[in-house]
């Protein structure tokens, strides 16, 4: 309930009205949107029970490892009721052709694979928010100060997910496990996204915000 209450208001895309429509404009709109979404994720992390009790160094380590997985889950959750499009924001949806034209074909394919897996499972909003918190807690950063505190942080979220599934899906005792078994694909998809944005940055075609670059560098 706490995680559902703390869900941030969705961010809207803000395409530059002075730039004519083009593939570059699509990428610019996307990078700007994801940078603002990233700011939201950092603010949201502070409201996950247990996160703020971690040391600042560990909070940074978890976010630096898990931010893209959290962003991917935001996009996935918005796209669950769509069959063809990736819903980056209510006013910013991209289909396969648009992604291909913008050089995001690999990312489209990877995201669609993940989305269809969650669509088949009928992922609920409660599961989305819990998984989103879990990807931060479980981000496998190599440089944490207090692994015990992070383990405890993970255990609390794990317990919340198990409790929820026991009540909501009593007929499927494996549902928690099934959800946790989607995390490798989520990480793989996030890595694909990081690669994509690193490539865009190297190509220098799209300006990126400092925060987004800083977080990409941490990867």
């Amino acid at each position: 309930s706490h995680l559902l209450m703390m869900e941030p208001t969705p961010v809207c895309a803000m395409p530059d009205p002075t730039t004519p429509d083009s593939d570059i404009k699509t990428l610019m709109t996307l990078c700007d949107l994801l940078n603002r979404e990233l700011l939201v994720v950092i603010g949201w992390a502070k409201h996950i029970p247990g996160f703020s009790a971690l040391s600042l160094v560990d909070q940074m380590a978890l976010l630096q490892s898990g931010w893209m997985e959290a962003l991917i889950l935001v996009v996935v959750s918005r796209s669950l009721s769509f069959t063809e499009e990736l819903v980056f924001a209510g006013n910013f949806r991209l289909d396969r052709a648009q992604c291909r034209a913008a050089g995001l074909q690999d990312l489209y394919t990877a995201l669609k694979h993940l989305i269809s897996k969650y669509q088949q499972m009928h992922l609920s909003p409660e599961e989305v928010v819990t998984l989103k918190a879990m990807v931060l807690a479980n981000s496998d950063s190599g440089s944490v100060e207090n692994p015990e505190a992070i383990q405890q942080f993970q255990d609390v979220l794990h317990e919340a997910l198990q409790d929820f599934e026991t009540g909501r899906h009593p007929g499927d005792p494996h549902r928690t496990g099934k959800l946790l078994m989607t995390l490798p694909l989520l990480r793989q998809t996030a890595n694909r996204a990081v690669d994509t944005f690193c490539r865009l940055q190297l190509e220098g075609r799209v300006p990126m915000h400092k925060l987004f670059l800083e977080m990409l560098e941490a990867k």
């Binding site: 700011l39 950092i42 603010g43 502070k46 600042l56 160094v57 909070q59 940074m60 976010l63 630096q64 400092k210 925060l211 800083e214 977080m215 560098e217 941490a218």
Partner: peptide, 15 residues
């Protein structure tokens, strides 16, 4: 920390 100063600042900010 110096390298990741924006994240550091955002986390220190209480809002």
């Amino acid at each position: 920390k110096e390298k990741h100063k924006i994240l550091h600042r955002l986390l220190q900010n209480s809002s």
